[in-house]
Write a protein that binds this DNA or RNA. Sequence first.
DNA 1: TATGAATGAGATTTCATTCAT
DNA 2: CATGAATGAAATCTCATTCAT
Lengths: 201, 201, 201, 201
Amino acid sequence: MGADKETREKLIDSARREFMEKGYNKASLRKICADAGVTTGALYFFFEDKEALFGAIADGPYNELIAILKSHFEEDEALMEQPYDAEEGDHDAFVEELVHHLYQNYDVFHMLLTKAQGSKYENAVDDLADILDETYTKMSAKMGSHYGGKVNKAMVHWLTHMILDAFIHMITHEKDEKKALAHIKKVMNFITKGWTAVIDK
Amino acid sequence: MGADKETREKLIDSARREFMEKGYNKASLRKICADAGVTTGALYFFFEDKEALFGAIADGPYNELIAILKSHFEEDEALMEQPYDAEEGDHDAFVEELVHHLYQNYDVFHMLLTKAQGSKYENAVDDLADILDETYTKMSAKMGSHYGGKVNKAMVHWLTHMILDAFIHMITHEKDEKKALAHIKKVMNFITKGWTAVIDK
Amino acid sequence: MGADKETREKLIDSARREFMEKGYNKASLRKICADAGVTTGALYFFFEDKEALFGAIADGPYNELIAILKSHFEEDEALMEQPYDAEEGDHDAFVEELVHHLYQNYDVFHMLLTKAQGSKYENAVDDLADILDETYTKMSAKMGSHYGGKVNKAMVHWLTHMILDAFIHMITHEKDEKKALAHIKKVMNFITKGWTAVIDK
Amino acid sequence: MGADKETREKLIDSARREFMEKGYNKASLRKICADAGVTTGALYFFFEDKEALFGAIADGPYNELIAILKSHFEEDEALMEQPYDAEEGDHDAFVEELVHHLYQNYDVFHMLLTKAQGSKYENAVDDLADILDETYTKMSAKMGSHYGGKVNKAMVHWLTHMILDAFIHMITHEKDEKKALAHIKKVMNFITKGWTAVIDK
DNA sequence: TATGAATGAGATTTCATTCAT
DNA sequence: CATGAATGAAATCTCATTCAT
């Protein structure tokens, strides 16, 4: 026992480093194997190909992220049926959970969001945008009717991207989770203010 | 006649296509030459290396962009010395010029902003951010004192990135210049509103 | 069995031939691989690059040569402290060892001394000259004071080169070890005689 | 007028520099043309190919050298028929002429003797050796019978090489003509002394 | 005379992947 | 489980040379 897992994990560790440093495309399987102290054959025993190796690192955190988002949005949408009350606390809790998850897997998300070109995750940002879009479209429709204003679809789409970009910016510029959280809260506040300012006309 | 320029331009055209499709790193000089109907040697007659070929496509539009930005910001800073009046017209004109320049060279900027990894432009976004930062820092200091509020430095930094991201988002999601302009104007409005909302407290 | 070593050795054999024929710079890795009946990739499994392939052929014999020289010179210098006696026998033995080593690795030294331009051994002759210089300078100082004459430094430097050139000439003009040995002994005798004739004034 | 010769001479000048720096094989015709401020086509108007360009630089000085040697040796051989008298003055004059010619064309001979691999002059040293051999064989036969000793053919051959090597060493290690002359005179003295010492037994 | 364009073959090196053992 | 060898295609780049104009 042990030796089995150890090799696989050594491989994953050194792959993580290599993918981080070079990005998906330029990462060298040779180097990953060399750093892990095994041969290329070993790698191909555990993983079907480069893509699968990348998946072994990224799939878990990514899918969890999707789950977190979906679960939250389902709650949100359910909440929207009910009379409005102090949602803010919940929202803060959600952001905290989100940031925590992102920073628990800091390297992975850094990779996924900025160095995945060439892999199946090269459109991860767009995929996330689609998920956000779905929810925000529903929400803005509600909010729009609630506030009596009209909401532009393209603007909603852009909103989702702006929020995404804010998180990407956070990850690429702030390594410390606490500072990141403080920062992103301000940013979300900014966006909300701007948003209502736009709608409130 | 024409044969001289034609080859060089065929090369540039096919390079543009290849760089657009594959990004700088994965673009194949072989394929570029094959598509242009010449041998690789021909390419090296006109361009020193891959980087130079990329530069031949990107340098012009990029440098012009920088010039447009700098010239505008110099005006802006000069204006800030004077009593505040309807600057908005100017600002709109500036955004229009900017968007026009970006869409006149649509492919190039698409490349530069999203597919330049490995080239000398791989940090173009950061470089642009630095330029914006400089101006926005000065401006926000003025505005801050004007409105009596305090302005967080990290927020300014993020603001510049948000604006940049907005433009990148525009280019990557909207091919039509008119629609892009309409969109970006709303976005800028949004940001301005959010901005004052944040400061005004 | 054997397949492992065979390829590596086939590669080295065909490399030796190619380097010998064309010299380091003009030797073609393609041809080396083709002659060895493997693909270029195979070469890069065994050797890091062209330089390393050359090193795999030349490093061993060269380092041994250095070792033989240094060991002999240390003895020589030790001997100089003692009263002079029949050193000649030792010297002959040394020359025999040297020639034997050179002709055991005839091809390698032929390469090293005349076809290594572009490789890390392109200054091998000068490096050897430095080693000889060091010893001969000490020795000539002793001999000079012993014989009451003065010894010119540039002449010592030239002496070392003359001896080196003699060995190079031997290797490039005489393939048979026995004949080479007989020849070089005469040459060394000549040089010694000329040397003392110069000093004895 | 003028322009014709100027181009040809610019080409030759820049070729000289390039051949000196890189050696025949690695010298780049492109660079030679670029440095001369002309295109490759121009080069091929004046010179048939790389070899011819090299010849245009080296042929003159080389052939003159051959002429000097042959003329001197003819005189020498004629002199040997006559009773021996103070030949030394003549010999000194010859060495002076030789060294002068070599240093008048310092770059060329430096090239020819150490950087001509790949060109028609790559065996120049051996060719010169053959010329010397011819004469020295005759001379040593005479001298041998004169002194009553026997002279080994291989030793004569080596003698010529030693003398050649001495000149090569001079050119590669001493840039100043006067110092070179002083040095080579000592060396020739050394060789002569060694020679008679060997024969005199 | 000379240009400027283009060729075509060659160079070294890197890579993901495969497979017999 | 894992090794070590090998593939084969592709990468960027360099070069001497040619030729229509």
